[in-house]
Amino acid sequence: MTDARITDPKALRALSHPFRWKLIKLLAEEGPRTATQCSQKLGESVASCSYHLNMLAKYGFVTEVEGPGRQKPWQVVSKRQQISSVGLGTEAAMAAEAASMAYLDQEFEEIRNRLRQREHLPAEWHEPSGTEGVIAFLTAAELAELKAELEKVVLKYDDRRTDPSLRPEGVRAVRFFLATTIAPE
């Protein structure tokens, strides 16, 4: 699976479960994990993790890593899942909306949990973390350009995600959530 937009209604429905987004996030942040390791980290049963990983694999979102041993770790196939209901038929559009809402539910839950824990972080992490909202008046072309620039800035450190040896001492997993929404006319 590439970073291409997901348009298959069945694949989109596979992403409509919030727990599957938690699995994708875990594998993207921490690298390959077995169902047992996912279970320990996420507090869900091994059977449930295995079931959801297999559903994600069925539609190409995760794959098993080949190697020795009976239990194979799973890894994400693509670091990005592009979902939009724009231009899709009714069934696919409804599935895209359900997948998007499941993603947002999981993402907002994670943001709330991390913000609640912020006071327990070392002091140097307090100021740079948090949330903020900004309103800018942009054309569609300017918004596309700004979004591309922001993604480029964040992806500057992407090699550290896939290669832990590149991570300097004191590094932490920092999650950026960028939402671009347009006000109705």
Rank of each mutant, 00 (worst) to 15 (best):
P18C: 09
T7H: 01
A136G: 04
A136L: 11
I6S: 00
E169L: 02
A123I: 03
W21F: 10
P128D: 02
V174S: 01
F176T: 05
P168N: 09
E151T: 04
I6H: 01
S45D: 15
K156Y: 00
T181F: 08
L88C: 02
E91Q: 03
S165G: 08
V62M: 02
V174P: 04
R112F: 14
V62L: 06
E110H: 14
L150M: 12
I6W: 01
V65W: 09
S16D: 04
V134G: 05
V134C: 05
E110N: 14
R118Q: 08
A99N: 06
R161D: 00
A93F: 01
S165E: 13
Q75C: 13
E91N: 04
H52K: 09
T34N: 12
T131V: 13
E142M: 07
T90H: 12
R161I: 11
V86I: 14
S45V: 15
T34E: 12
A93T: 02
E132G: 04
M55C: 11
V77H: 10
G130H: 07
L121T: 01
T36S: 13
L166W: 14
S16L: 04
T181G: 14
V62Y: 05
V77E: 11
V76N: 08
T2S: 08
L121D: 03
P164M: 06
R80S: 10
L178S: 09
D3M: 03
L155K: 08
R118E: 03
S129A: 07
N54P: 02
R160G: 01
G130Y: 04
V77W: 10
R172V: 01
L115G: 03
L15D: 05
I111P: 05
S16E: 04
P9H: 02
A28K: 08
V154L: 07
Q71C: 09
L121W: 02
D158A: 15
L53E: 15
T180L: 13
V62F: 06
S48V: 15
K147M: 10
A123Q: 10
L150H: 03
L53R: 07
E107L: 10
F137T: 11
P68K: 06
Y59A: 01
K58Q: 13
Q82I: 14
E91W: 03
K152G: 00
E151F: 12
G69H: 01
G69E: 09
R167P: 00
A11L: 01
S100K: 13
E107P: 08
L143I: 04
V86P: 05
L88T: 00
G130T: 04
R33S: 14
P32L: 12
R161P: 02
R118Y: 06
K58A: 10
A4H: 02
G170H: 05
T181D: 11
V86K: 11
E127G: 01
Q37F: 10
A93W: 04
L23F: 11
